[in-house]
Design a protein around this nucleic acid. Structure first.
Length: 277
DNA sequence: TTGATTGTTCACGGCGATTC
DNA sequence: GAATCGCCGTGAACAATCAA
């Protein structure tokens, strides 16, 4: 979809891009044969120069300049290009970001393997590991996960970042991550019903009593979020494609969801979900 | 409850086409 | 060549939303 995009260039908005597509200019390669009258000659010349520059950037593997010129509601278009270097990311913390709140666990799924990081164990390895990914996919990560990580580790995450919250909202799916999963019939298996507040409680149980079952349940919950992010990303991409003329030729396949390496403790989940809490 | 981000709406300005 | 008009991109302001 990247090479069908024109609205990353100055002076080109959605209207102009749609007009180009309708005129048969489906990819950058079609630009030389643009029909007379599709746009003023001077503008067409600037467009050609812009596309030539974009071609050069992509040839050098530079996607960032391309994304910077693209309005955020179109960032989903780079997904297939960077899919092999995507990290689906989710963090758990002790709160919403008040002073003193810390990151307890981080789960990263890259489409192949699941990585997890635990405070006081291997959390300090996270900045080095996340460096190798070129794109982050989160839910509400622009407001919560990424700013929290940047403050906590005092680092900058420079990757292309897709926040599914806004993309799914465009498609009429709201109600938080769990709401979106429910609307799409996605199963959360043994962590169904748990939410972020339960994750805080599980961490306190682990920290205070050292209960392994509490940490395992927390990690099962954390990892489940990241695994489901891939399916949500593919759903969003394929549905947004339907708003372009290219749905039939650009659709991406679903990934194969891995088994969650952590299992929630049923008794712990039942206790958390009971009225006592 | 807080703060950051986004989409939506609206107004403005630039640019090109048209008319005289 | 100048004046006018209309299209479209851009930016500001505001409301809505979501995370643990």
């Amino acid at each position: 979809m990247l090479r069908r995009t024109f609205c990353h260039l100055p002076g080109v908005g959605p209207h102009t891009e749609t007009r180009l597509w309708e005129a048969g200019i489906s990819t950058w390669d079609d630009l030389p044969k643009a029909p007379v009258g599709v746009m003023p000659p001077a503008k067409l010349e600037r467009l050609r120069a812009g596309i030539a520059a974009s071609e050069a950037q992509l040839a050098r593997g530079e996607v960032h300049p391309f994304v910077q010129g693209l309005a955020s509601q179109h960032h989903w278009r780079v997904f297939p290009t960077l899919r092999s270097a995507v990290a689906y990311l989710d963090i758990e913390t002790t709160g919403l970001g008040s002073p003193g709140d810390i990151i307890t666990t981080i789960a990263v799924y890259d489409g192949q393997q699941v990585l997890h990081f635990v405070n006081d164990q291997n959390l300090n390895e996270f900045p080095k590991v996340i460096e190798k990914y070129e794109m982050l996919v989160t839910y509400n990560g622009k407001c919560f996960d990424v700013p929290f990580i940047e403050r906590f580790f005092d680092i900058r995450l420079e990757q292309v970042h897709l926040d599914l919250r806004y993309i799914l909202r465009q498609l009429g799916l709201g109600g938080g991550l769990k709401g979106c999963e429910k609307a799409l019939g996605m199963d959360r298996h043994d962590v169904a019903g748990l939410d972020g507040f339960h994750a805080v409680l599980l961490w306190h149980e682990w920290a205070k009593h050292g209960w392994q079952r509490s940490l395992d349940t927390l990690l099962a919950y954390n990892v489940a979020d990241t695994i489901n992010l891939e399916a949500l990303m593919v759903y969003a991409y394929n549905h947004l494609l339907c708003e372009t003329p290219f749905a039939a030729v650009e659709t991406v396949p679903n990934g194969v969801a891995p088994d969650n390496p952590f299992q929630a403790d049923p008794a712990t989940v039942a206790r958390l979900l009971s009225s006592a809490w």
